[in-house]
Structure formats: C-alpha cells, structure tokens
Design a protein around this nucleic acid. Sequence first.
DNA 1: TCGTTGATATTCT
DNA 2: GAATATCAACGAC
Length: 205
Amino acid sequence: MAAPSTANDPSGVLQQALQAARLLIGWTLAAPDGTAGIIVETEAYTRDDPASHSFNGETHRNRSMFLGAGHAYVYRSYGIHFCMNVVTGSPGDGAAVLLRALQPVAGLEAMARRRGTDDPRRLCSGPGRLCQALGIDARHDGVPLLVREGLRLTPPNRQVEPLVAVGTRIGITKAADWPRRFALAGSPYLSRPLRNGNRPPAPGA
DNA sequence: TCGTTGATATTCT
DNA sequence: GAATATCAACGAC
C-alpha cells in the first residue's frame, strides 16, 4: 500500500505532522535534572496510519496523543521501555512525532549512570534509550513541553538549515515503508542508519 | 558483524 | 492469546 497523497489530507493534519517531524530536528529536549540532547531523529504518526496508536481512535492509553500541539505523549513499549512523542496539530487530531534519537549535550554523567554505559553514541540513540537517559517515564505523559518547568523543548539558534534526510520507519510491521522518518544527515547518533531515503554524504567524503 | 531470543506491561482480538 | 512505535545479551560465523 502506498502512502496517501496530500490530496487525502484536506485539513492538513498529515502535513503539519510531517513538517513538525522535520522541524524538530535540531531542537533541544531538556530534563529538569540538567540532562539534555539535540533531536536528530524523528518519526511522524497520524490517524491515517495503520502503525499509529491513534489509528483506532482515542483510548485511555493514547489520550495524550489527542491533546494538541506541544504536549508529550509517553507510553510503555514492550512492557519495559518508555517512548516519547511530541503531539502536533489541534486537540482531537491524534497526531504526534516520535523522538527516536538525541545527540547528548548536557548532563552526560547522569545519563551514563541511568543507562549503564559511557558510550555517548549509546546514551540516547533509540526511543527507549533517550527516555531512560533523561529519566522520562509515565509521569511525563500529557505534560506541556513549551513551558519553563519540567521537560522543556527549545528551538535552535539556526545559522544554517540542517540537512534533514527522509527515510522509512523502524520497528513496525504495518506501513513500514512509508517515508515518515526524518534524521539529521550524517549524524553518528541515529538509532539506525537511514534507509530508502536521500542518502547522506558518505563520511569523510 | 550478523541473526536470534528473552524480558515484560498493556492493548486488542 | 497474540501483538507490540524496544533493547541487550548471546552464539554462530
């Protein structure tokens, strides 16, 4: 099944989510304990997407995904890990951007303690890993992110636009080939190399 | 460097 | 019961 065209998106919910997923590359996510990282990898999920938690409508688990832009949607994955989304769109849209990887920039000692490794490339390179590194869990489900307290999302000071590449998604079985994954081209902090997208320049080239 | 597997909570069938 | 937006440990090569 091919990804739906923008003609099927009259309200623009999908385009908002895709644009948010792209724009969030370069933003900083900071936790109150001083840990912080730059977002280098995201995935967009909307209600038209069989792989999205919002595909079958609002439930107790995914209610935060319907709160509207700027809220966090945090859920437990495989019974063990937590994964964090940034909700996009208007209340009721059920659209969000999954944060898949960060480049750690502050509080690396605390991250290493929580993660049990010193390797900076293993601290936040994965949706479960970044939540563990920043201490994100169910308490953060539904909180607003664009405020001064708690989890904070802050925009970059952009000198130049980052080179953002698009690829197919990871860790899902339904609609896995839809090009809704965004990543900072060439970043060593991705959860996995980009596939099927505009390939970033070869390292050293 | 690969592929496989166990751990474990919540949701949906 | 089965599936899941995951990760780490382990064994075969």
